[in-house]
Design a protein around this nucleic acid. Structure first.
Lengths: 152, 152
DNA sequence: TTGTTTTATGCAATATAATGCAAATTCATA
DNA sequence: TATGAATTTGCATTATATTGCATAAAACAA
């Protein structure tokens, strides 16, 4: 039996190489690849992965959201952040080596009005709040992230 | 009860801010933070996280390995990779937006002799094999990665 | 609207993972 | 090598997560 993670990987790859306009379709493709699941499970997988229904010129199409990372990646981001430090103007995150860009990108995409922007090096992310008085609010957002309360 | 993920995040953060020379020590710190586990569990957490025993001038010290990402991260890297393409000279990975650096870094750290090096943009990783004839071998390595056979 | 197709979800069964305990192993040191 | 301290591991148990089924909700077409 294939694991959930492996299956979701397959799904992501199918979505990024073919046009999928309903769940039935991808269920068949998966079956051909030896992965048999019900539509219910697929529906949940889509939710996990951050798949969205998009209305393109080709009709309805399921695609990986490029502005929403989905649950699994959010989990990953929590693991990537090591420490959070701050002064009165800005916040500095320490991350696992080589993962700062990804973390910064994720934070950008959270689209929080309290966060003006981010800059990332290799293992360090600088976060600038929209105003100093919002540092506390931003810290809260980040702490939720590392506690894996990514929906808060 | 705190989840495993939350606990392991805490552990990572403790390790990167304090000097820990035995497991008992960190168990106490965790207890103070409201996380009560046995030493056996901690031992397994260390294994998951890729924590290593290091012999520093200050004596034995537990630190996060900087050359080994640990199980949790390894499991999730597959999710970041969308597609794998190649010609006779090189391999190109498409990743989720903003995650190419992290993926490239991870691949570098796999330390495979068949991989000469990687270059990453925002969502694209270029992988150069040590010689063209090894492309197949490298593809295999990458396919294992996305199928979550990260130890192969 | 109304009927039809597609997707999401509550619930229960099942499978998988996490954990404590105790035993075994490893490690440092005499 | 023997000893004690530290760490890992096997096993049994408990807790979580995954999944299918049936059904509800939503989207769509006419």
């Amino acid at each position: 039996m294939t694991s959930k993670l492996t299956r979701q990987n397959k799904i992501k790859r199918i979505l990024s190489t073919r046009i999928i306009s309903n769940q039935e379709q991808i269920l068949n493709i998966l079956k051909n690849e030896g992965v048999s699941i019900t539509q219910a499970t697929l529906s949940r997988d889509f939710a996990d992965l951050g798949v969205i229904r998009s209305f393109t010129s080709l009709g309805v199409q399921y695609i990986l959201s490029s502005t929403d990372y989905g649950k699994e990646i959010s989990k990953l981001v929590g693991l990537e952040i090591l420490t959070i430090a701050h002064n009165e103007n800005s916040i500095v995150l320490r991350t696992l080596a080589g993962r700062a860009q990804g973390v910064a990108h994720f934070i950008d995409r959270m689209n929080k009005k309290e966060i003006l922007g981010t800059i990332a090096g290799d293992d360090t992310v600088l976060i600038i709040p929209d105003k100093a008085s919002n540092i506390k609010k931003v810290l809260e957002i980040l702490n939720n992230l590392i506690s894996n309360n990514y929906n808060k």
